[in-house]
Amino acid sequence: MRYLILMAGVLAAGFGLSSPYQIQLLTFIGINSLLALGLNMLMGYAGQISLGHAAFFGLGAYVTGVLTAHFHWSPWLALPVAILLTAAAAFLIALPLLELSGFYLGMGTLGFGMIGYVVFRQWSSLTGGDSGLVGIPSLELGPLSFADAKNYLFLVWAVALLCIFLCDRLIHSRIGRALRAIHDSERAASSMGIDTGRLKVHIFVLSAVMAAIAGFLYAHLVSFISPGSFDFLVSIRIVTMVVIGGMASVWGALLGASVMTILPETLTVFTEYEMIVYGLIMITIMIVIPQGLFRGILDIYERARFRTGSIPAGPQA
């Protein structure tokens, strides 16, 4: 039901909006939602953090960018390559780090993000270095051309909605329960026979793959990418989206992505204070409502519902 409403909303917005600026903004919200959703799966459900998600985002964008612009591959061939490469990188990062406590994963992914940024800048024969990579073609599917901004909007949101739908299903499955169990108590989860290490690696890879898909969509939308779009601040922006939307909330990711996309656009002074705002948001929300805005409101609602329920009799053997 919620999907139908959202779909209708996107369709209405797509046909209703005429200004290219607004369409572009909505498209970016879709791409950011993908990023936030992916990281949310990792942070909210597995209780692990990644401070280098921009590198996975960048990997997706650069792999498809290089393959299509330099080697003239079809984007649809480049997509699986981008996904596979990102998954492999994420797997290698996750395998040893997820055994360690959350702080080390934070530092490790931070370091990985820096490595990614340096590689995008320095490997200029492929990536174009600081001046960026130009000439990434737009997407085409048969007779349908996504060079048209509205079509691209629909494409991005179709992918985003599909991912939200799939993640929602995953969370409400056996795997999702196991993930939440790890988040609540790793010791108890492993005493239930859950292979916590393996599951954490899987969710990390899933999270990175979603970032890569977002990167793919981003690259073919803007047709020009440069390292600046994948630096540390971008990783922080994604974390902030998750924090605003609330960890462990698929729909919160949408909210976080919308806020973090619209806010910088509407506040023109924002660039000066961007970092201060991010920092304050992260600190304040973590202290006051660690579940995030969205989840915080839901929690109040759920608590109220439980209070009114009747009290059962308890265990009697």
């Binding site: 401070l51 959350g102 204070y273 920092g279 992260m282 973590m286 202290i287």
Partner: peptide, 22 residues
């Protein structure tokens, strides 16, 4: 929880950097 502390100190880091820039 470690993840909360990581987010807070990362937030502090970015906040201080913003203040430094100002």
């Amino acid at each position: 929880h470690p993840i909360v502390l990581v987010i807070i100190t990362v937030g502090a880091s970015i906040l201080l950097r913003g203040v430094g820039m100002l």
